[in-house]
């Protein structure tokens, strides 16, 4: 699975409910669509740290990094690249 697929799988498992047929596109804001709430962002941070072995700093937790599948994928890939 690539990074985007892993994020999507995590969001699907933990936040999305299939019952109402809602589809989240990779650019949709997690918060504005209500898919992830404020506590959910903290869970997302833990997921990124554990799944990708990335150290997430306080100032990394901003909408530009954590508010959509695409933002998060770009963030994870840039961090992972920096660690190599």
């Amino acid at each position: 699975m690539d990074t985007r697929q892993m994020i999507r799988a995590y969001i699907n498992e933990n936040f999305l409910f299939s019952t109402n047929g809602f589809r989240l596109s990779d650019d949709d804001s997690f918060l504005e669509t209500g898919v992830v709430d404020s506590m959910g962002i903290m869970e997302l941070v833990l997921f990124v740290e554990e799944q990708f072995g990335i150290q997430v700093a306080d100032e990394d937790v901003v909408p530009g990094n954590f508010d959509s599948v695409n933002c998060l994928a770009v963030f994870i890939e840039s961090k992972a690249g920096a660690n190599d």
Partner: peptide
Amino acid sequence: ERSFAFPTV
């Protein structure tokens, strides 16, 4: 603010 989801913001 909409929430406290992004404390840094």
